[in-house]
Amino acid sequence: MFDPSRWDDPEIANKARLLMHFGLEGRRCIGKTVAMTNIYKFMSTILSEFDFELADEAERV
């Protein structure tokens, strides 16, 4: 279950700074553009295979 409130915990929020997958500023990964393009292509391909609809109010938990 997706729970965005998990970032409210200060201990977990402090770990978010460690999520620099492609580096920062001058030491940034040179393959970032290619990787991001592949991620967008992959996600759009996968999402096009599914049908989405809103859940009934009774089913939301």
Rank of each mutant, 00 (worst) to 15 (best):
E49I: 08
R28W: 05
A58L: 12
V34T: 15
A35D: 06
M1W: 14
S5T: 15
N38L: 10
M36V: 13
F2Y: 15
H21T: 14
W7L: 09
M36R: 10
R60N: 00
R27F: 13
I30A: 08
S44N: 02
E11L: 06
A55K: 13
F2A: 11
P10G: 01
V61H: 10
R60F: 01
E53D: 04
G31I: 11
E59M: 02
A58M: 12
F52W: 02
L18R: 01
N38D: 08
I46S: 01
S5Y: 14
L24E: 13
S48R: 02
R28Q: 08
D9I: 06
V34M: 14
E11P: 01
T37W: 10
N14D: 11
A16W: 07
D56R: 12
T37R: 12
I46M: 03
N14I: 12
G26W: 12
E53R: 04
K15C: 05
A13W: 01
A35F: 04
D51A: 07
F52K: 00
F52L: 03
A16F: 09
Y40H: 07
S5I: 14
W7A: 07
E53L: 03
D9H: 04
M36K: 11
R6N: 05
F50N: 03
M20Q: 15
G23H: 03
R17A: 11
D51Y: 07
E53W: 03
S5L: 15
D51R: 08
W7S: 05
E11R: 04
R17V: 11
F52Y: 02
D56M: 12
A13V: 04
G23C: 05
V61K: 10
D51P: 00
E25M: 13
K32Y: 09
V34W: 14
I12Q: 00
P10Y: 01
S44Q: 02
H21V: 14
T33S: 06
P10W: 00
E53K: 03
D56T: 13
K41D: 02
